[in-house]
Design a protein around this nucleic acid. Structure first.
Lengths: 212, 212
DNA sequence: ATGTTTTGTCAAATTACTGTAACATTACTG
DNA sequence: CAGTAATGTTACAGTAATTTGACAAAACAT
């Protein structure tokens, strides 16, 4: 999981970075809003921790910009006495906020909580955990192969969107993969067999989609 | 989805083209405003990315012209320091703008966002999503075949305009298609059966149109 | 190395879609 | 109001796309 921390106090940054790294996160840091956005655009960030007060572009603006372009979790750091701002921060799309000063442990817990929401996904009666890569159907665990899991993941990430065979090849097999697009059919079939026939819909001449 | 990119820097065009093609868009490119308009009139463009500064006809003019005649999304590319122009660009009908220089990824995300907003169209009690290719009638989803969907799309794009069978053959079946124009009738029939009889009107001796 | 699982490809079987033609119906014309 | 022209409707055969099953190669684990 990639997280981005933006704060103008270098000391704070360093401390948080080492804390989060110890927890297995990949950490990017920025000392102002502009830098934060630059990193955000270049990397695949799952969650951003943004300080409210930052030089150049402040936390709200950065948050707004991030939310505008991509699915990302944002956790705001606010000054202790900023009560009405809290509401604003949330209403502007921040997913959670933590008052300064805070215990790093608390922050880590909050972050984990936010990311956990994302880690288990549900499609109809099928659930799967992106982190542990386990899959359940109607409560009982089932086994998917690597490709089947990836397929399911991609479908889940684009619910109800029709994905062409080529799109699926690109995102599951990789952009550089060269092979028969019909291979996708076979894997869809195998996946359907395991998770149920109704979850993945065929759209003749176009591709496949989830039905929910 | 067809998008048109207009910019006077060929290098930039090529790069953007390949980026967008990889995302599944059909990309048309133009190196000046005149060319952009020519393509716009010939093709069915869903979104145009226009550079602010272009030879012959500039981005604003092109945007104004496009918005005048057809439903299309416009995204402007502006120079970094052009602040007051930003407002102008928006007030003149551009749907979004991105400052140069930018990350291709940002542009792609913005484009996708723009198209998503407009991607759902409504004709009477029928709604359809151009991106996900799903169709609803009075709220419940219905299934259209590829040709039926294309027909609906063309009608929706030319509301209340009478389209001859030949025009429909051209835009749905392709310019090079050779076949009985009465084939259109059959498909209209099938489409009417699914979306309701009243949406497509017959104009004896001329063709068909939407009633709304 | 050996057995097992996974994977990609192919081809037959199946299914859905399409275009045409033939007939029915409707609207227009004089 | 009959005749004509255009459109509506239906059925069907041909076609196109997908599903399915089988197989061999590759990857993996033991």
């Amino acid at each position: 999981m990639n997280i981005l921390i933006a704060d103008d106090e270098i000391e704070m940054l360093k401390i948080l970075q080492s804390y989060f790294q110890r927890e297995g996160f990949t950490v990017f840091i920025a000392t102002n809003g502009e830098e934060a956005l630059a990193i955000f655009y270049q990397e695949q960030i799952d969650l951003a921790i943004l300080d409210w007060m930052m030089p150049k572009i402040d936390g709200i603006m950065v948050c707004r910009e991030m939310k505008k372009t991509q699915k990302i979790k944002v956790l705001m750091l606010t000054a202790r006495d900023a009560d009405e701002d809290e509401f604003q921060a949330l209403s502007d799309g921040a997913d959670d906020y933590v008052n300064k000063p805070f215990y790093p442990k608390v922050l880590i817990m909050r972050v984990k909580k936010l990311l956990q929401i994302e880690s288990i996904q549900h499609i109809s009666d099928v659930s799967f955990d992106i982190v542990s890569k386990r899959v359940w159907r109607a409560g009982t665990e089932i086994e998917l192969t690597k490709t089947e899991f990836e397929l399911l993941r991609v479908f889940s990430q684009h619910r109800r969107q029709i994905l062409t065979r080529d799109q699926l090849l690109d995102s599951v097999w990789g952009l550089d993969y060269i092979g028969d697009p019909r291979t996708v059919d076979t894997h869809i079939r195998r996946l359907r067999e395991k998770i149920g026939e109704d979850i993945i819909q065929t759209h003749r001449g176009i591709g496949y989609s989830t039905s929910v």
